[in-house]
Simulated scan of single mutants.
Amino acid sequence: MLKIDAHQHFWIYDDVRDSWISEEMAVLRADFMPSQLLAELQQHHFDGSVVVQSDQSSEENLFQIKNAKHHDFVKGIVGWVDLQAEDIEDQLSGLTEYDKLKGFRHILQGEKDRALMLKPAFLNGISKLKSFNYTYDVLIFPDQLKFAAELAAKFPDQLFVLDHIAKPDIKGSSIAEWKKDIIALAQHENVYCKVSGIVTEADWANWKDEDFRPYLDVVFETFGIARLMYGSDWPVCLVAASYPQVVGLMEGYTSQLSSDEQALFWGGNATRFYNLK
């Protein structure tokens, strides 16, 4: 099986477009491109990665498609498309020429309308994905988990993956409500979960491996090994941890698993979910 980092980003920094990068995240105010990630992947024996959009524009798709074209290790792209557009079906059809474009994501966590994903126009867009074999990455905060479960229930044949285990408040050790809603979401077998982006939800300067165990226990128990995939969230992870630290954290946790289970987590599930070559 391939060993895949199923969640990372590339960008050429723009202080207007990337205004989400706050002062305390200043380490991210730089360019992060494929050649930089390749060194990390090679060091940790990854076969490739899935790059995920960070900007909501058609230009973002073309930027990542170009990166993937020139770097074979980029096995898949999660892009962006306006799912609420009236011509969404035509847009999706036009994108099918790009083999490495595997699915889409909308930054739902940033929407004032917390239930935007359940609005008719958005649902219409989601309804068109399956016919083109596109996946959908669900980027939300814990207060939106209930809406995500409702979304998954409406489209049982559509593949969804929850990004960053829905960003629980690990720094504040808040877990009860998140756990209840994760259990409900995981009951939908069309939903996978990325174990990614967790270091940035902890105390950036003082986290310890054991801080994550209660949350990891929940997702491993509820989703099961066949629906979990590893993602570094590089370079965003750098505000709290180096690439080796992120890998080491999950190597430590998954050391309890069998070799077959580890192969699924570290790449097998991502390969199947995104239909990677």
Rank of each mutant, 00 (worst) to 15 (best):
E177V: 15
S196N: 06
I182Q: 00
E97P: 00
D203L: 01
F46C: 07
S131I: 07
D15C: 05
Q91I: 14
N124A: 14
A6I: 12
K180W: 00
K167H: 03
Q8L: 10
Y274C: 13
K3T: 06
D211S: 02
V247M: 06
T96V: 15
P244N: 10
L139T: 02
H106D: 05
A115M: 11
K69P: 04
V247H: 05
L83T: 12
P34Y: 08
I4D: 05
L276S: 11
F223W: 02
T96P: 03
K171R: 13
E89G: 09
A115L: 15
V16R: 11
M117I: 13
H70Q: 12
F155L: 13
D143E: 09
K277Q: 13
Q158T: 12
D169A: 10
W178D: 02
V78L: 15
D163H: 03
Q144F: 04
V51D: 12
R29V: 11
S258D: 11
K3Q: 12
D203H: 15
V74C: 11
V191T: 10
E150W: 00
V219P: 00
K3G: 04
I21D: 07
H164F: 09
A241D: 11
G94E: 10
E24A: 11
L257P: 00
L139D: 01
K100V: 09
Y134R: 01
A240N: 05
H71W: 07
K130W: 02
F273D: 04
A115K: 14
D82H: 13
F122M: 14
